[in-house]
Structures are given as structure tokens and as C-alpha cells.
């Protein structure tokens, strides 16, 4: 029950104060940048930028690194796969069927760095933006699409309700698990199929409860006059400031650098 990765880290830094829309757009730009980067220098620039952002957010580097832990397996796995299966380039090592080339090492390193950068960048977004600001930002960004029938408001509402209920359902999962364990259920041993079957006593009650909650929530929302996005106002108004413009400019500059290098 201690999933803290990417969860909002309350604060009042420059990054925290930026408009969520600006942050989302900058994050997207950075993700593009990550995929464009194809040289040691451009990666260096990206990492330097990421490091500067972390300092600006006033979140400790240690905390961010800790957040990387769960994906380390994927990073190493990608690294290994890329190293062994990239052909071409000068051969460095050859042992039985294993063959490592310099371009393999290069592709593998870049791939791994790419993943790490992606996680740092998206983590920074979610760490400095509350889920509500995030969904507000997404809704606002998608609003132009509403004119062609895209359900921007509904999507944002769904996201924020999902986030509201994640902790509730996590607590419930823990409770149901304990209750079934008290009836002798075993969630930990056995073959894969046995284990999948063993999840039923957990999943069925969990889904039944989620549906019941959804039903009741719908009724409660209706009782509070909810009738979709039309005619709705928001208490918190999003406002872009000079700060956001500056952030966007810096991100654009970085993107240009990465693209050229």
C-alpha cells in the first residue's frame, strides 16, 4: 500500500506554480525531444535540463531516483535485448553465439537512457501537479476538440473520479484479501494458473463493489445537479503567466538543440 511513485508531492516551487496546460505541453515536447535525441551531446543536454528541472521543483534527486526503481528491470531488459540483437558495427566481443558490437552497445545505452528520461520527465509532471490540476489541464487542452464531438469534459471527469477512487479501492482490496485469507485463501503459492484462479475470490467482490459504488456515485452526482459539461463553471480558473511562457520558451530551445545535435 505504499505506492508513492509519481504521486503528487505538495510544494510551492516554480514548477508547482506553473499552469498545468503549460506543463503538459512542455512534457509532450520533452517526450518528442527524447525520441529525437540521437547523439551523446543531445542526451547530455536532455539530462542537464532534467536535472535543472528537478532542482527547480525542490524535490530531492534521491526521491526521483527511488521512483526509477520499479522500472529498472525494464530498463535492464531493454538494454540487454538491444545489445544482443543489434547487428552491424564493429565486433567487440564474441563468445559462442553471443556477439556484441559497438553499435549494439550504443543503441542499447541510448534506449535505456531514453526510458530513464521518459520516466523522469513524466514523473516531474505528476509530482508537481495535483491530479485535479492535471485533469483540468487535459480538459482545457482538449476543449477545442469538443466542437467536433470529442468528449473532452467526460474524459476529464472520468479521470478525476478514477483518481478519487483509487485509494478507496486499494483499501478495499486489502480488506477483501485479508477476509479471504481468514477463510484459508492462498494468494501466494501454486502454479500460474492456480494463482490466477486464486484471484477470483478477490476480484469478484472487488468488481461487485466497484459497480455498486459507481451506481451510488451516479445517483449522488445527479442529486447535486450534475448534467454533463454544458453550462458548468469551474471554481479554479486556469491562467497562463509569464512563468509558463518562459517555460515553453526554454523547452522549445532545448528541442531545437536536440534536433540539431
Amino acid at each position: 500500500m505504499q505506492i508513492t511513485i509519481g504521486q503528487y508531492f505538495p510544494g510551492d516551487s516554480l514548477l508547482h506554480r506553473m499552469d498545468p496546460r503549460a506543463k503538459i505541453l512542455i512534457t509532450i515536447a520533452l517526450i518528442v525531444g527524447v525520441f529525437l535525441a540521437d547523439s551523446v551531446l543531445s542526451y547530455a543536454a536532455m539530462f542537464a535540463f532534467a536535472f535543472a528541472m528537478i532542482r527547480l521543483s525542490r524535490i530531492s534527486v534521491k526521491y526521483i531516483v527511488k521512483g526509477l526503481k520499479p522500472i529498472m528491470f525494464i530498463v535492464i531488459f531493454t538494454f540487454v535485448i538491444n545489445m544482443f540483437f543489434t547487428t552491424g558495427g564493429t565486433e567487440l566481443v564474441r563468445w559462442r553465439f553471443i556477439r556484441i558490437t559497438d553499435s549494439g552497445v550504443r543503441a542499447a545505452s541510448f534506449m535505456a537512457l531514453r526510458l530513464v528520461l521518459l520516466v523522469i520527465v513524466t514523473q516531474l509532471l505528476t509530482l508537481t501537479t495535483s491530479s485535479i490540476a492535471l485533469t483540468d489541464g487535459i480538459e482545457s487542452l482538449l476543449k477545442p476538440l469538443a466542437r467536433i464531438g470529442f468528449p473532452a469534459h467526460e474524459l476529464a471527469m472520468m479521470m478525476s473520479i478514477a483518481m478519487r477512487f483509487i485509494p478507496t479501492l486499494m483499501e478495499e482490496t486489502d480488506k477483501i484479501m485479508k477476509a479471504q485469507m481468514a477463510r484459508g485463501a492462498d494468494f501466494e503459492s501454486g502454479s500460474l494458473i492456480q494463482r490466477a484462479r486464486a484471484m477470483l475470490p478477490l476480484l469478484v467482490p472487488l468488481f461487485v463493489s466497484a459497480f455498486r459504488r459507481a451506481d451510488e456515485l451516479a445517483l449522488a452526482m445527479e442529486a447535486r445537479c450534475y448534467r454533463g459539461g454544458r453550462g458548468r463553471t469551474r471554481m479554479k480558473q486556469l491562467r497562463c503567466t509569464k512563468l509558463d511562457a518562459a517555460g515553453a520558451a526554454v523547452a522549445a530551445a532545448l528541442l531545437a538543440v536536440v534536433a540539431v545535435l
Binding site: 480488506k175 477483501i176 485479508k178 477476509a179 479471504q180 481468514a182 477463510r183 477470483l200 475470490p201 476480484l203 469478484v204 467482490p205 461487485v208 463493489s209
Partner: peptide, 13 residues
Amino acid sequence: VGLVFQYPEYQLF
């Protein structure tokens, strides 16, 4: 030792 949790009906499956 048998343990019946609060609102045990929510554990039926």
C-alpha cells in the same frame, strides 16, 4: 480461529 470481518457480505464471490 475464525474471523468474520465487518460487512462480511462484501466478500461473497
